[in-house]
């Protein structure tokens, strides 16, 4: 067992556990976007930052990738951590202002303003879909391509990949696109649920830019709003 201090509380966890796992096990919430049980930690979204160490030697690390060490002092919600997290959320929100997950997280963390230009990237490059495809679906149909500001996720040569089984796992885990409704592009639609079910309550034109996760039906939600 490894003994460490989280938010002043002396705790012990099994060897090999990450700081995130330790904190969550003892009921200290740390927000995450790119972390998912069953997928390897990646440390892309930086939301899970925590402060470790003391005084001038204190530093910020991503708790999802940092292994719990003997005698480590961790602060999951110090001023510095909260400030960093809010900034990260504001930046994420600027790149994907339409993401419901990010909106909810931002609201929960009291992000009240948006000082950056909205990019509408529909992707935060968290790599969840890439890891899902490789590690859970054993397909490796999609991956990171290009680099720098051109970096994106997709299939090689932008062609339909032979490895892809249209399982939809990538969209299921995506915090930014969340089964982006593909009704207007039925040929390539993975789900096509709304098109098949043809909900009579919907005028289909405004579906163009909507998130659809079918349960509950977004269109119906909007209707009742």
């Amino acid at each position: 067992m490894i003994h460490l201090t989280i938010n002043g509380l002396a705790v012990s966890v099994e060897e090999g556990a990450t700081v995130l796992e330790a904190a969550r096990f003892y009921g200290m919430p740390i927000p995450t976007l790119c972390h998912m049980d069953g997928l390897s930690p990646y440390g892309a979204c930086r939301l899970c930052v925590v402060e470790i160490g003391e005084g001038p030697r204190a530093k910020m690390v991503t708790s999802c990738t940092y292994p719990a060490e003997e005698g480590l002092t961790v602060r999951t919600a110090s001023d510095r951590v909260i400030r960093a997290r809010k900034m990260i959320l504001e930046l994420l929100l600027a790149s994907c202002p339409q993401s419901r997950t990010i909106q909810d997280l931002a609201a929960a963390h009291d992000v009240r303003q948006q000082r950056f230009r909205q990019e509408h990237d529909d992707c935060i490059l968290c790599g969840l879909c890439v890891r899902m495809c490789e590690e859970q679906m054993m397909a490796k149909a999609i991956g990171f391509r290009h680099r720098g500001e051109k970096r994106d996720i997709g299939t090689p040569f932008d062609k339909h990949s032979e490895e892809c089984r249209l399982c939809g796992g990538c969209m299921y885990v995506c915090p930014a696109c969340q089964l982006r409704c593909t009704y207007t592009d039925t040929e390539n639609a993975v789900c096509g649920g709304c098109a098949n079910l043809a909900p009579p309550c919907v005028d289909k034109d405004p579906f163009d830019d909507m998130m659809c996760s079918m349960a509950p039906c977004v269109a119906c939600e909007i209707k009742t709003d």
């Binding site: 991956g143 990171f144 391509r145 290009h146 680099r147 299939t155 040569f157 490895e163």
Partner: peptide, 12 residues
């Protein structure tokens, strides 16, 4: 190797 990896390196 998976084609994705090769393509990723080639475009990187």
């Amino acid at each position: 190797r998976s084609l994705v990896d090769v393509y990723g390196v080639a475009t990187f």
